[in-house]
Design a protein around this nucleic acid. Structure first.
Length: 550
RNA sequence: GGUCUGUUGGUGAAGUGGCUUAACACACCACCCUCUCAAGGUGGCAUUCACGGGUUCGAACCCCGUACAGACUACCA
């Protein structure tokens, strides 16, 4: 087709497109950023809530933009209306906000490079496609779904590359007259790329994460505009990232296969090619082997899961940071007083293969997070959590505020703070004895060590010996003395040496007291608990134990 | 079937030709500390980097082949 024919065709196909490319090029001028500033973007589809992998990606985007004084923007990729979900966009913003990931530009806060929703940019895409038709790089294709399926079958059978290319691209060289005729018959069509590539040629791409990769040149007539005039991901990606001046396209590595296509589009359109960084998927192991974490199958893939089970957002971010850069963990261990923002992330410390999602590790990170928080902070955060997910408990927490803070502060001032909580929901369980209502309701059910303890000795200890004003050392000396007076050994070691000489050892007395007042055989520092409860509540609990076991 | 990318312990990984007797962290086990637990301390946990061949004085690191795994192969992103 000659140039004038192509122009006629372009006009015929896009009579409503009045602007030309230059109009948009001028509308979205270069961003004036300092040397080395990165412009990144997160492009979610509003298909439901945010997936762990997407969160990881957006975290990555935000981190790199921030540490280079660049721009991180959010673009809603809703070109497939069928998949869009009601309130999908809202859900994305909520989930990101929960993790404190705030885009500099978006459909919510605005920006100079909008609209930031692809469905509102149709005219822009069509303008460029119109130009492509004039240039002879695109054409209307009238093939039906059945035709395409048949070609596919044929290709599968003869074991060759599947797709519309070469002589399979039957509408590639339709004459203007033929096209006009089909248009007159109201035949439906898509706009396909007239790929100038040759699969014999090899192209090389350097990815920020994966390094050098070689591909055959792209030679397929990929769909650019769907039947409804809406762009495919590929077209939208190329045009948007050019117009919005993205410097680094950070996306999942399911896209590397289409890299040759994207590069070709950038070249045909005369755009500068951005840098690419393809991140490895977060995977999970199950019976079938290793697979990508799935939003449908795995609860932990949903970002909202963490909030629900009570894992602090900050802990999840710390975990994300450790899988983002392999050297982050060690840095954080040595710089525990610093925040994630102070670490410099780099592409070359990112994983190339898939990363197994390790809940154990997350738990550990979370425990460390809790151990560094003061009792009061843990109390406040737990209360927030309970107000949302366990209202009855929230009321009790408020009623016992002073006690709870004291309990949560036990052993906090030591240089080896306890690490027994990994989730907000653990607090209720771990400190069930802190709240009378829970303690009495549970009827000591928590203790099933099978031992029976006599209360008389313990009562005697509490009434005659226990001094709440004592120091830890005095307290322990007192109880040792008491043990000896009553025929117990002063230490387990001594007891082990000559068990026949003793009834038991101090530990047994402590154990009995512990079980009676906490309902469990494990707890933080006993004396701290006793002090918080006070003598009368301790005795009350001992009596209760006596009644229950009689 | 085709294209691309991987493969270091139970897990995440460090490692880019000699400093590796393979870091670090999680998990696990043992011991120590100790009134219990948690924490902490010490030690154990890959004689070897999927397998086979090659290059080299020398290879986990470079090259070739095989096996396995993953991604893509839509008018979905």
């Amino acid at each position: 087709m000659e140039l004038n024919e192509r122009k006629e065709l372009a006009e015929l196909l896009f009579p409503n497109i009045k602007h030309d490319r230059d109009y948009y090029e001028k509308m979205y001028p270069d961003r004036n950023l300092k040397e080395g500033a990165m412009v990144t973007r997160f492009g979610p589809s509003p298909t439901g809530f945010v997936h762990m992998g997407s969160l990881f990606g957006s975290f990555c985007d935000a981190v790199f933009a921030k540490q280079t004084d660049g721009v991180f923007y959010l673009r809603i990729e809703d070109t497939d209306q069928k998949r869009s979900v009601e309130n999908g966009i809202e859900g994305i913003f909520n989930d990101l906000e929960a993790f404190n990931i705030v885009p500099d530009e978006s459909s919510v806060v605005g920006g100079d490079y909008g609209p930031y929703i692809q469905s509102e940019r149709t005219e822009i895409y069509q303008t460029y496609v119109k130009d492509l038709i004039e240039e002879g790089y695109a054409y209307p294709c009238f093939m039906s779904e059945e035709e395409i399926a048949q070609i596919r079958e044929e290709q599968e059978l003869s074991k060759i590359k599947i797709g519309i290319y070469g002589h399979y691209a039957v509408d590639r060289d339709l004459s203007l007259e033929e096209i006009k005729e089909k248009l007159c018959n109201k035949e439906e069509y898509v706009i396909r790329l007239k790929s100038p590539g040759n699969a014999e040629n090899e192209i090389e791409v350097v990815d920020c994460i994966k390094g050098r990769m070689k591909f055959p040149e792209h030679d397929m007539d990929t769909v650019l505009l769907k039947k409804d005039g809406t762009p495919t991901y590929h077209l939208a990606h190329v045009i948007d990232d050019h117009l919005m001046h993205t410097t680094h396209v950070i996306r999942g590595d399911e896209w590397v296969a289409s890299l040759p296509l994207h590069i070709q589009l950038f070249k045909i359109l005369g755009f500068k090619i951005p840098k690419y960084a393809h991140t490895a998927p977060i995977t999970k192991k199950d019976e079938g082997g290793i697979r990508k974490l799935s939003k449908r199958k795995d609860a932990e893939a949903k970002v909202s899961y963490y909030e629900e089970v009570g894992i602090p957002i900050e802990a999840v971010k710390l975990y994300l940071a450790t899988i983002l850069n392999s050297n982050f963990e060690e840095w954080y261990l040595n710089n525990s007083d610093k925040s994630i923002e102070e670490f410099t992330f780099t592409f070359d410390k990112m994983a190339i293969g898939g990363t197994l999602f390790d809940l154990d590790k997350l738990n550990n990170i979370s425990k460390t997070y809790f151990s560094r928080k003061s009792g009061e902070e843990v109390y406040n955060e737990t209360l927030e959590y309970a107000k949302k997910f366990d209202k009855d408990y929230a009321l009790l927490l408020e009623k016992y505020e002073d006690d709870m803070i004291k309990f949560l502060s036990i052993e906090k001032d030591s240089d080896r703070p306890r690490k027994d909580i990994s989730k907000y929901s653990d607090v209720k369980e771990e400190f069930s004895y802190a709240i009378d209502e829970l303690f009495y309701k549970e009827n000591y059910a928590k203790y099933d060590g099978g031992k029976q303890f006599s209360t008389s000795l313990i009562k005697k200890y509490v009434e005659d010996v226990l001094n709440l004003e004592a120091t830890n050392e005095e307290w322990f000396n007192d109880i040792k003395e008491f043990a000896v007076e009553n025929g117990y050994a002063a230490s387990p070691k001594e007891y082990k040496k000559n068990p026949e000489n003793y009834i038991g050892h101090v530990g047994d007395i402590c154990e009995a007291l512990r079980v009676m007042i906490t309902g469990r055989d494990k707890s933080p520092d006993l004396f701290s608990i006793v002090k918080i409860l006070g003598k009368s509540r301790v005795l009350e609990r001992i009596n209760r134990y006596e009644n229950l076991t009689r």
